[in-house]
Write a protein that binds this DNA or RNA. Structure first.
Lengths: 144, 144
DNA sequence: AATCAAAATTGTAATCATTACAAATTTGCA
DNA sequence: TGCAAATTTGTAATGATTACAATTTTGATT
C-alpha cells in the first residue's frame, strides 16, 4: 500500500473504526482502482497478511459499502466488484474480456430521475456494456 | 399468458426461432413486468409446462438477452433479473424488500457518455438503490 | 410416412461466489 | 490486570448458475 493515511482518513470519515485489516482492505482498493472482486482483494493482501480470512474480506467490503466508503458494483453477474472512487462516474464492462473501465459522465443532472413520492434513493449506478478497444475487432469477426 | 402473438412477434423480430418453450418464456416476461428471476420464470411456468427444465429457462433467458429481445438486469447481487420492457428506462431496487421498480428517465441524452475511441457500447443500465415507499419508514427507524 | 441430421430440450452433477455460524482473538476501558 | 464488546478467523453450508451428455423434437428430403 502506497500510504495508509488516506485509507485511515476514509474509514474515519465513513464512521468505520480503523483496524489493521480494514486499513489494508481500504488501502488496497485505493491503490487498485481496477474494480477488484472480493477474491482479488483477498489474493492481493494474503501474502502481506497471512492470517487474513476471506470472510473478513467479504464482511469488510460489505461494511465499507454500507457506510459509503466505497462503491459496490453489480455490473457483473458473476462477482460483485468494489470501487474506492466514490465520485460520480459511469462504468463500462467488456462482454468479452470482462474488464471494467471508468467512464466520465457527460452531465450529472442527466442522471436524475423524477423524485418519486416516498422513495429514498441512496445510490445510483450507470453501467455500459459492450466491447472494449482490444476486444472490438474480435467481436466484429464473430458477428457480434 | 394473455396472448401468444406478441411473444412470437418479439422472438421473430429478434431473430429467435419460436418454440413452445421460448414462446412461453417470452410471454411470461411480457405478462410479468416485475423483473422476475430465472427461478420466478420457471416456477411460473412449470405447472402449465410440466416437462419444462430449469436449464431451458436459463439458456433461453440468456439467448433472449443476447438477441436483444429482453433486458438482463444485474441490479441484484444475488440473482439476475429479466425485463421484457426494452424501452429505455431506469430501475430502482429497494435494499430492504428487494423489489425492483421501473423509473422513467428524465432525459435521454443525459445518459450519453463521451464516445470512447474503439469501444463498442451495446447496452446501458441505470440503477438506483435505496428504500421504497413501504420500507422507507422502517429504514428510518433503523437509522439507515 | 420413413429417414436422418441439426436444433432444441432435459436432468443430473458440478462449480463457485457468498454467507452462516461458532470459536478464537483483539481491543479498550474499568 | 480483567472483562465485555468488537473484530477476526475457519469451516461448513447455501444457492444461483453452468457443464455436459442424453433424449426429444423439428424440418427437410426422399
Amino acid at each position: 500500500m502506497k500510504t495508509q493515511s488516506g485509507a485511515i482518513e476514509r474509514l474515519e470519515q465513513s464512521g468505520v473504526k480503523p483496524s489493521m485489516q480494514r486499513i489494508a482492505i481500504m488501502g488496497y482498493l485505493m491503490d487498485n482502482l481496477t474494480h477488484p472482486t472480493a477474491d482479488n482483494v483477498f489474493n492481493g493482501l494474503s501474502s502481506s497478511i497471512p492470517t487474513l480470512s476471506k470472510t473478513t474480506v467479504y464482511n469488510t467490503l460489505k461494511l465499507l459499502a454500507r457506510q459509503g466508503a466505497i462503491l459496490e458494483l453489480t455490473i457483473d453477474d458473476k462477482n460483485v466488484r468494489y470501487d474506492a472512487n466514490i465520485f460520480l462516474h459511469a462504468h463500462f464492462r467488456c462482454k468479452l474480456c470482462g474488464s471494467v473501465y471508468d467512464l466520465p459522465v457527460g452531465s450529472f443532472k442527466a442522471m436524475t430521475v423524477k423524485a418519486i413520492d416516498g422513495f429514498t434513493i441512496t445510490e445510483r449506478q450507470l453501467y455500459y456494456k459492450g466491447y472494449c478497444k482490444r476486444c472490438s475487432a474480435k467481436a466484429e469477426k464473430n458477428g457480434a
